[in-house]
Design a protein around this nucleic acid. Sequence first.
DNA 1: ACAAAAGTGTTTGGCGTACACCCATGA
DNA 2: TCATGGGTGTACGCCAAACACTTTTGT
Lengths: 251, 251
Amino acid sequence: MLRNTLANREKYQPGLSIDCVIFGFHDNQLKVLLIKTKYSEQWALPGGFVPLNEDIDQAAVSVLHGRTGLNGIFLRQFATFGAVKRSQESFNNKVIKFYDIPSDAGKWYSSRFVTIGYYALVDFLQAVPQTEGKNEIVEWIDHNAVPDLILDHKEILDKALETLRMELNLMPVGYNLLPEKFTIPELQRLYETILGRKLDRRNFLRKITAIGILIKLDEKKSNVAHKAPNLYSFDKERYDAVLKSGLNQGW
Amino acid sequence: MLRNTLANREKYQPGLSIDCVIFGFHDNQLKVLLIKTKYSEQWALPGGFVPLNEDIDQAAVSVLHGRTGLNGIFLRQFATFGAVKRSQESFNNKVIKFYDIPSDAGKWYSSRFVTIGYYALVDFLQAVPQTEGKNEIVEWIDHNAVPDLILDHKEILDKALETLRMELNLMPVGYNLLPEKFTIPELQRLYETILGRKLDRRNFLRKITAIGILIKLDEKKSNVAHKAPNLYSFDKERYDAVLKSGLNQGW
DNA sequence: ACAAAAGTGTTTGGCGTACACCCATGA
DNA sequence: TCATGGGTGTACGCCAAACACTTTTGT
């Protein structure tokens, strides 16, 4: 796959890449979609190159679609990383050796790449992690258990979460991270997981309902221990309206 | 200057540029440093290319220093722009013709450039707008009177201001935009100018002093009409501390 | 003395925080 | 019946918003 890209490298923007931090939510855990390639012991963020005839945003959509099969997902550019030393000779050589990349393509590949970071919020259950070729493993990893990542990918991941936490004050979150029907406690746990701290149940309910994006369904969650919680869904129209206009209150 | 860069184009990151939105404050007006080149009727943001051996942040610092003579300035990356159509053939041809750029260099120049946007806050009186060569005019332009800009530079400028407004809720502003000694009303007008709306004097005073970054000087502004306002300066140590830790309240 | 801007304090309402009780369900 | 988690309402305190009077200075 990489060989393929490199063979057609004149069709891509040189020295530029996309990296996506894809967040999911499951088992009350924030998950990140990561890739492990056979040429490295370390995991990596899913990424890709930018075709000359594609907007960078479109290239990010492609990466996301290629890795999850999903479209129309919340996706946001958050930062661009371009330190000279983010490119590591030792790492590049490993990749070049593994794929037996010709030297001219290797030169292209080994130059400093500036990478544009995007983060996405996706439905864990709908996303189907997809490999490209046999040399990869693609998996959801608990955010708390993320191991060492290649290059500066850890820094990119951290910055993504930092941005998400900040933007939680400016927009509603949940539409792409939760199934269509969900309970308030589930939504609360999502917020708590992203923020990394506990919130008060009662205050959370008041605040989240005050936004006016929730529809209380005439239905309760079944097969659960203890009292059955009510099910809700998002009022997509209002949700999108608030996404645009923004919140004014923070958490 | 551009010819020079293009002649050494192998020393620069291809297809990548930096654009800086440099804000100043004067006469109760938000100013933006813009450049007008002889080959276009339109103004442009100051920008530059990224040397292969320089971090992108460093390249932004270079642009800023080159245009204002200032160092150690507040400078922040806010977004990266990479639509395919942000490159305009008609515009590129104008430039190529004006500088009589050789065709191979012209090809390099005409490709789609992804540009990384930075915004800076500088002291209007200390910054000395500097041209590069005789084909440019560099001037402070009132933000309210910004004319049409080349390519997508208007979009970049708008996004910069939007980001600044947002970040005003997260950090103190003023250290680099005001002279060392200033009055509270001056600081308030800065905030009002950035936000584009009026604030209440008394509430502003309470809020801004509560942050704990101001030092009240035993000195009043002289030669002013009406009651002489008190002078203040920033407690740089606390100011920097708050910059790092962040505010929690918005405007 | 008058106008215009600066300095100061108080009131009020709303939101965030803290907190207690009841309810439903599975074990 | 007991433990666990869900649902609901209230009281308090702080901060933001609204607002009026006094002070200073130039004209």
